[in-house]
Design a protein around this nucleic acid. Structure first.
Lengths: 348, 348
DNA sequence: CTGAAAGCGCTTACAG
DNA sequence: CTGAAAGCGCTTACAG
């Protein structure tokens, strides 16, 4: 757990101490402990006993320097601007981080949490000493991805992203399916004037919903209305956009707000205009704490982020040669109906 | 960001490369870069330019080994058993982690997220190479605290804990105040048979609420009813305990469930028994995602965890000699009224 | 099966 | 002001 200078009494045991206690060389201790199988069983046991007695644990710092591996990975969100707008999508990021930390730990890897940081500070990530990187839903030309590419740090994205090369591993969050689920739901519910709010950066998930939306608009004769707002504006942005939409066209009967923070703002806007959802239906993508805690709560898509994060760690550790285990599977996204847009069945 | 073997083309620059390019020794480069002030301004500039040109960033691994500091801290929750019970209190832990990661980053420190792990695995934390530790609400004799003490790893607890020594730094979450806020609220609301559910481990927060509860019971002639359940049982445990309480004494008119997961379970139990809150008032301590997303939502205490986490990082980095900045202040806890137990004012 | 030696990339007395 | 040398604690060819 540490490599402090000996503050509290007993100095931490080093490999040399174990060697001395066992009457062998440090080399042999290293071999014995790494299970390379080149040490006689008898010697090995003596060494293990000595190590145990001394409470020896190899210095992770020395191991890292020598081996070039730190057994540490990091998870970073590309939604760096989010910090300005009040932790937009934080639930998303933390849900991934928590599951990833658990899986990483199972493999004996530590997980570093990189806070959302402004693009200018991305460079300072050079301080990190990690073997690999998990990037949460990068945008096209995402600065974090650029840095990882430049430094040759293996990375895996949670969610696919525009501009990924064939060699880059992505955990598919099935954005197309999520988009279709939501659009189908609205179609079946019989809406006639749904509008769409997405963020302003090029992300796969936005492209997916916009595509599905425009196609449905074509099919059903909806006038297509797409608002693109700053991600960093979060709830405020969603509130303002929804207010604009509902004022510009009072016939608007649904808002697809594709970021949970936008949706929460949209619910507030609709309510303030006397059109409390589901009077205007509001739906979003990520079924996280925000969607659940909104009042009324927001219909959303269960993306199975923990499973995706787990698969991301599996994949990353495979890249690092730390496992040969195949990716854990990720279930298909599912719609979670809430008061902001109940299932049409139930109200029929 | 990395120290990979040169997978992708250009090898990463080392200090020797900078020295060569600037026509000086590695020693001088080190001095120039660490701003020790023993290098002539002219030489310094030449070195900085060379470093810049080569994209040089010191290897964190080498720096860590040599200096004995990794510029990394970890945050761990003592609620290790929680994992079994479905991530009880996860919201609490992650809220601390997110804020701590941000503050740590400001200081140039990375934050490692230690997932909730069973006590038997605590030993494996020896793999971590961290300079210090943040422990979230440890219990008495908490294994994580024991490990930190044994290894001499500086640590700070978020929330005070029983058995802390005078020398150990704790960030006070003002458990007494939180307890009093809740008890006062129930007293003013006129409840006559409130019951208390706490976890089975010795924690400051449980002691605080039990103390306040018993005193109020004395003062107001409530029959004191305290259920102690396994923390790891989470929502289930809360549901079962609340069911027992409400069945044993149908006059029970309030349940103080001091872990958010317990409270969510209690709400479900009360609802299932046809006594949907606030018919039975239900209140909890931590105002997190669980309390907010419950249906009805649960009255809770805003503990200002992000501020506490920030202060914890400040304090820890002070212990590590990395800052002299005083702790950030933490606001007083406040009650957040929700449907499970509205303010008595509003219903009077 | 076992060990001496080199080296991972820095920093830090120490000497000049 | 600048540099040669030692050393942080390991692992890994290599030799025996």
């Amino acid at each position: 757990m540490h490599d402090e200078p000996p503050t509290t009494g007993a100095r931490r045991a080093r490999i040399a101490d174990v060697a001395r206690a066992a009457g062998v060389s440090a080399t042999t201790v290293s071999h014995a402990l790494s299970n390379s199988g080149r040490v006689s069983e008898q010697t090995r046991e003596r060494i293990l006993r000595a190590a145990e007695d001394l409470g020896y644990r190899p210095s992770p710092r020395a191991t890292a320097l020598r081996s070039g591996r730190s057994r540490t990975i990091a998870v970073a969100s590309s939604m760096s601007a989010a910090v300005a707008g009040g932790a937009a999508r934080q639930g998303f990021y933390l849900e991934v981080a928590a599951a990833a930390a658990e899986r990483a730990f199972d493999y004996g890897y530590a997980l570093v949490l990189v806070p959302p940081i402004p693009d200018e500070l991305i460079e300072t990530l050079g301080h990190l000493s990690v073997d690999g990187l998990l990037v949460v839903e990068p945008a096209q030309d995402d600065p974090i991805v650029r840095l990882a590419r430049r430094d040759g740090v293996p990375f895996v994205s949670i969610g696919s992203f525009p501009g990924a090369t064939d060699a880059e591993e992505q955990i598919d969050l099935q954005s197309d399916t999520a988009a279709e689920l939501v659009i189908d739901h609205l179609v079946r519910a019989g809406v006639r004037r749904p509008a769409l709010i997405v963020g302003d950066r090029p992300r796969t998930s936005y492209a997916a919903i916009e595509h599905a939306y425009r196609r449905a608009a074509d099919d059903h004769g909806w006038p297509p209305v797409v608002e693109r707002i700053f991600e960093a504006d979060g709830e405020d942005g969603g509130r303002q956009a929804a207010t604009r939409l509902l004022t510009a066209d009072p016939q608007t009967d649904a808002i697809i707000a594709w970021v949970d923070a936008f949706a929460v703002g949209a619910v507030q806007a609709a309510t303030a205009l006397g059109r409390t959802p589901p009077a205007v239906r509001i739906v979003t993508r990520f079924d996280g704490p925000r969607a659940r805690a909104s009042e009324p709560a927001v219909t959303a898509v269960r993306l199975h982020l923990p499973e995706a994060a787990t698969a991301g760690v599996d994949e990353l550790l495979r890249l690092l040669g730390a496992t040969t285990q195949p990716r854990a599977p990720i279930p298909r996204p599912e719609l979670v109906f809430r008061a902001s847009s109940p299932d049409h069945q139930q109200q029929a």
